[in-house]
């Protein structure tokens, strides 16, 4: 039962690979922008799902790692002249480090207390960064145009960023699958169902939770760097949007938490729906209300999410839709 022989392992990868590849071949700016947003949320939701779906810990302010990592990567890149690749990994590493330190303390809290603490951390980080001189305080930072020169101008830099995001998304999906199907992941799922019982069975819950928190914080840091590099600026209001954090949760829930494919499906569906509502003449003004209504219906009536629902109905597909 090696993982590279499993359809469930390849299915999400092939889908994302083909789609990203097609965007690169078509080489149209508008398609790339749409694809960038969807891929970004896919990767963010999948990262969140590694914590939320496998351990059951609801990280409500997960966007803090996108913000802090993005800020750090952006700083390394535009103020210190690091290459994009290194800066992004640096941003991810910082997010991971913060998650390690914060996690040691916060992961002792359970249920809603943990969720509230993560909101507090995000708000505290936002307020801190707004006052932090090296990061430009409340106005944030702008990309030094010379930074784009290295990638053959601003236009080419956007394609480079997209390619990097595409690869990151593939890596997140691989990691998500491997975590789920490892001995480590089995321990996480035991924690999700009953943490005390898991510890009695020998699962080192504090360590396992902290490692998972670090993994799920690392990728948002990379993605944040790419996103703000693409935008050309970073500011506290964009970096620590609680609203975006909740959208990540919604995507995981839509697709099915605890599945590899779920966050992918959820991100695509959510972004597709939002795009439709925003452009539709009937719903344009009401897009938020309609999105809320749909979310409510799903939570009330399809709590397992799309992938979870299909897996429950058609057991034969369990091996395919991981």
């Amino acid at each position: 039962m090696k993982f590279w022989r499993q359809t469930g392992f390849w299915l999400p990868l092939v889908l994302v690979f083909l789609w990203g590849g097609a965007v690169l071949v078509l080489r149209q700016d508008t398609i790339r922008e749409t694809a960038f947003t969807v891929l970004m949320f896919m990767a963010l939701a999948s990262s969140l799902n590694i914590l939320l779906g496998y351990t059951g810990y609801v990280s409500f302010g997960h966007i803090v790692f996108f913000g802090l990592g993005g800020y750090t990567g952006f700083y390394l890149l535009s103020e210190q002249g690091w290459p994009l690749y290194l800066a992004a990994v640096g941003g991810g590493a910082l997010s991971g480090l913060i998650a390690l330190l914060v996690g040691l303390a916060v992961l002792r809290l359970r249920g809603a207390y943990f969720a509230l603490a993560t909101i507090g951390i995000n708000e505290a980080a936002r307020a801190f960064v707004s006052n932090f001189g090296p990061f430009g305080g409340a106005t944030g930072m702008f990309v030094n145009f010379s930074a784009y020169e290295k990638y053959g101008g601003a236009g080419q830099a956007l394609w480079t960023t997209f390619t990097f995001l595409w690869i990151t998304t593939l890596v997140v999906l691989v990691v998500s699958y491997l975590v789920k199907h490892s001995r480590f992941g089995l321990g996480l799922q035991a924690i999700r169902e009953d943490e005390d019982a898991a510890m009695v069975m020998g699962v080192h819950a504090p360590r396992a939770k902290t490692i998972t928190y670090v993994i799920s914080a690392f990728f948002p840091g990379i993605i944040g760097t790419l996103y703000f590099f693409k935008n050309g600026n970073v500011e506290p209001g964009d970096a620590f949007q609680l609203h975006m954090s909740i959208e990540m949760l919604v995507m995981v829930m839509l697709g099915g938490m605890g599945t590899v494919l779920g966050p992918m499906v959820g991100a695509t569906a959510y972004q597709g729906l939002r795009g439709y509502l925003l452009t539709s003449p009937i719903f344009k003004d009401l897009h938020l209300a309609v999105a809320g209504l749909i979310l409510l219906l799903i939570i009330l009536f399809v709590p397992a999410g799309a992938v979870g629902w299909v897996r429950g109905r058609i057991p034969a597909l369990r091996k395919v839709l991981e």
Binding site: L52, G56, V58, F60, G111, A112, A115, I246, L249, V250, M253, M257, D285, L286, H287, L288, A289, V290, A291, G292, L293, L295, L296, I299, L300, P303
Partner: peptide, 28 residues
């Protein structure tokens, strides 16, 4: 009412959905 006994995430997201609906209608 339907999610009162479900895990915390359900009631958090259900009330957030209401948040979106009110803000959406209110903005309009």
């Amino acid at each position: 009412h339907r999610v009162i006994n479900a895990p915390h995430l359900s009631s958090l997201l259900a009330t957030f959905a209401v948040n979106m609906i009110i803000i959406g209608l209110g903005t309009a």
